[in-house]
Simulated scan of single mutants.
Amino acid sequence: MRKFVCLICGYIYEGYEVPEICPICKAGADKFEEVFENKEDGIYKRFKVEKKVKENDVVTSFYLKSIEKVQLKKHKAGQFIAVKLNIDGVDEVRQYSLSMKPGEDFYRISVKREEKGLVSRYLHDNVFEGDVLEISEPLGQFILKDSNRPLILMSGGIGITPVMSMLYEASNSGREIIFVQAVLNSSAHTFKSEIKKIVKENNNVQTEVFYSEPLDKDKIGVDYDHLGFVSNEWIEKSLPKDGEFYFCGPLGFMKHIYICLTNIVTDKSSINYEVFGPSADLSEK
């Protein structure tokens, strides 16, 4: 039996021949790479939870350091790692985007607790500082392209994780960056202080924060910039048509942003996105 890993989503397939299509992300056979038995440790390695940080009411970050203390593979901004957990005797694998600046001596994943999410609930409730997790090397092809065009990073909810890494990577490049974040309110506003620090240190970075249901204590102009959702009208009025667009979030958010962007940009190759879970055609209603 042979093993193949999908370079797009991290799915590991066991069989005699490379699969024609990934059952998770629908990538073709050319996106699979064979993993040989003597490279088994190359799939999952043991990392210790160095820090566990509660970002807000729903998101917790896990800072992971190699037990072997080897130099980490530098991830490309936007990539993810696969995390393998044994829960009640069953191995469960999930993919989580790396949310920190590439080149650090740790990996950071930021996990939203989903009430019906077996693994996310386990990480939040049962994994603590000092515990050991098995993780893969960074994978995925949702990464920044070389470009000097304005960079527009857009996220909905926990979709901020890959674009946060992109923000770190691009912030000192000098290119114009517009960082658009859509969240419910301050209780779910992830990386608020980190983003403010990046903006303060880099005058090429502009943020636009949308709260759809602000709390009574949330102040427009202080905690957020816009009430409601990222509308087609706002996109047409506020974003450069010659930019490079990267976005991630819930499927409804993704479809909305995709349709809005196709109305204003002529170069469709400038529209880049990542779907959490099985791939989907964002042009379908």
Results as ranks from 00 to 15, higher is better:
2 R>S: 07
2 R>V: 00
9 C>P: 08
10 G>Y: 00
20 E>R: 14
21 I>F: 12
25 C>N: 06
29 A>N: 13
29 A>I: 10
36 F>Y: 13
37 E>H: 10
42 G>Q: 13
43 I>T: 07
44 Y>D: 08
45 K>R: 15
45 K>P: 06
46 R>E: 14
46 R>P: 07
47 F>P: 09
50 E>V: 03
52 K>I: 07
56 N>Y: 06
61 S>C: 04
70 V>T: 14
71 Q>M: 05
72 L>H: 12
79 Q>Y: 08
81 I>M: 02
83 V>S: 04
85 L>A: 13
86 N>C: 11
86 N>W: 01
89 G>R: 14
93 V>T: 10
98 L>A: 09
99 S>P: 05
100 M>D: 10
102 P>K: 03
102 P>R: 05
103 G>D: 09
104 E>T: 01
104 E>V: 01
107 Y>C: 02
111 V>N: 06
112 K>T: 01
112 K>Q: 09
115 E>P: 01
120 S>M: 10
124 H>K: 13
129 E>C: 07
131 D>R: 09
132 V>G: 06
133 L>H: 12
135 I>H: 02
139 L>T: 02
144 L>F: 04
145 K>I: 10
147 S>N: 11
150 P>S: 04
151 L>Y: 04
152 I>P: 00
154 M>S: 06
154 M>K: 02
154 M>H: 03
154 M>A: 10
161 T>P: 06
165 S>K: 05
166 M>F: 01
169 E>D: 12
171 S>R: 03
172 N>Q: 07
173 S>V: 05
173 S>C: 02
176 E>T: 10
177 I>G: 03
178 I>G: 00
182 A>S: 15
182 A>V: 11
189 H>D: 13
190 T>G: 03
192 K>I: 01
192 K>M: 08
193 S>Y: 11
194 E>S: 15
195 I>W: 02
195 I>N: 00
196 K>Q: 08
203 N>R: 14
208 E>Y: 08
208 E>N: 10
210 F>T: 07
213 E>A: 14
215 L>V: 06
218 D>C: 13
221 G>F: 01
221 G>H: 01
222 V>I: 08
226 H>F: 14
230 V>N: 04
239 L>K: 04
242 D>M: 00
244 E>F: 04
245 F>C: 03
253 F>A: 10
253 F>D: 12
256 H>I: 09
257 I>H: 03
259 I>A: 14
260 C>I: 01
261 L>G: 04
263 N>K: 15
264 I>L: 01
265 V>T: 09
266 T>G: 10
268 K>L: 11
274 E>V: 02
276 F>N: 13
277 G>Q: 08
282 L>W: 09
